[in-house]
Design a protein around this nucleic acid. Structure first.
Length: 305
RNA sequence: GGUCCGAUGGAUGAGUGGUUUAGUCACCGGUCUGCAAAACCGUCUACAGCGGUUCGAAUCCGCUUCGGACCU
């Protein structure tokens, strides 16, 4: 063998909206290929919120080796950049003992970080971030936009001027690095030393929504309310800006009734699912399969591996 | 049988003659590089039906249909 683009290591990436049954399918695939599972989910990484984030059950975790499930603390400053570094390192270890690893999760940005990599941008400096947020609060976004126009005219021209998050981050990177944000955004796909095969789980919209609604009811039955209560004191953490918890916190505050909170969890989960589909739809690398057709999925993968 | 009130887009709800859309919510579509289950953007042009008045009607008049209240 001389130079070949094909690696003997394969990462099967399973994507799909929340409630699409990724966990079950990932377990079947992992079992079939004797592979460990690495999560690409930005919320299942946290300890203490297993019900609301639909983490795999104890039996499922026992059946297949999982990574990045309940592995971090709610107070950890975790993000997609950190995830890329840690997940890549873990993958390297896993590929020493396995030819196939299954990645599952619903966070598009984390999947992108894992498969394509993030540019070399600095993490937010906490103090700077805070002062920018204060300015946003006190002076409005116009003030930050004025800075951005001066610091990075190119990005100023393309950024959504209504989106505070994007504007704050851009100004922050400019100030931290002394360089225009846009000049640091290469958007280049990083080389990976393993093959990536993306599998999408497809549902008819109405059916998916029905599954989501029923799953929320199940979460309630399993004790989501008590779980939310147990982390209520940490509510301002980013890790808890999460569907299922925010709505419960509002209920605890008395701003909504319990019934309203549950309805809102359903609605927001549906909306989340819609946004996920929007994200995944533009990824041409994904091979889509009907949710009930795991056999075809396995055939397809067997063929490729 | 009679009198009165009402009928606006998926829901709610303003609008009483005139370039153009009320608004809100839901749905739908989209954006996406360190908070991403986040943050944000866009679309959805309806006036119960028929006829009349008028240069012009969701808006005025009549009839019909439907709903509600009341009267005998």
């Amino acid at each position: 063998m001389t130079t070949t683009m094909t690696s003997t290591k394969h990462l099967i990436v399973v994507v799909g909206a929340t409630g699409s049954g990724k966990t079950d399918i990932s377990l079947r695939l992992a079992t079939h290929f004797g592979a460990p599972i690495i999560s690409t989910d930005s919320r299942q990484v946290y300890k203490g919120i297993p019900i609301g984030t639909a983490q795999p059950t104890a039996e499922q975790l026992a059946a297949v080796e999982h990574h990045f499930i309940a592995s971090h603390s709610l107070t950890d400053n975790f993000n997609c950049g950190e995830y890329e570094v840690q997940a890549l390192a873990r993958l390297e270890e896993l590929f020493r003992a396995h030819d196939v690893v299954v990645a599952v999760g619903g966070s598009g940005l984390y999947i992108q970080a894992l498969c394509e990599g993030m540019d070399d941008l600095p993490q937010a400096d906490e103090q700077l971030r805070q002062s920018l947020m204060e300015r946003l609060q006190n002076e409005g976004i116009e003030s930050l936009l004025a800075d951005l126009e001066r610091l990075d005219p190119d990005y100023y021209a393309q950024v959504d001027h209504c989106n505070p998050s994007r504007v704050v981050r851009a100004v922050e990177v400019c100030m931290q690095t002394g360089q225009p944000y846009s000049s640091l955004r290469k958007g280049e796909r990083h080389k990976r030393n393993f093959n990536i095969i993306k599998i999408g789980i497809e549902w008819e919209r109405a059916t998916l929504y029905d599954r989501i609604n029923r799953r929320v009811d199940m979460m309630i039955d399993e004790g989501l309310e008590a779980e939310a209560r147990s982390v209520y004191h940490l509510r301002q953490l980013n890790s808890l800006q999460t569907v299922g918890y925010r709505e419960m916190f509002d209920y605890f505050d008395g701003t909504t009734t319990r019934e309203e909170a549950i309805e809102l969890i359903k609605r927001n989960s549906r909306r989340y699912a819609k946004r996920q589909m929007t994200w995944f739809r533009r990824d041409a690398d994904i091979e889509w399969f009907n949710a009930s057709d795991v056999e075809s999925m396995i055939d397809f993968l067997d063929n490729k591996i």
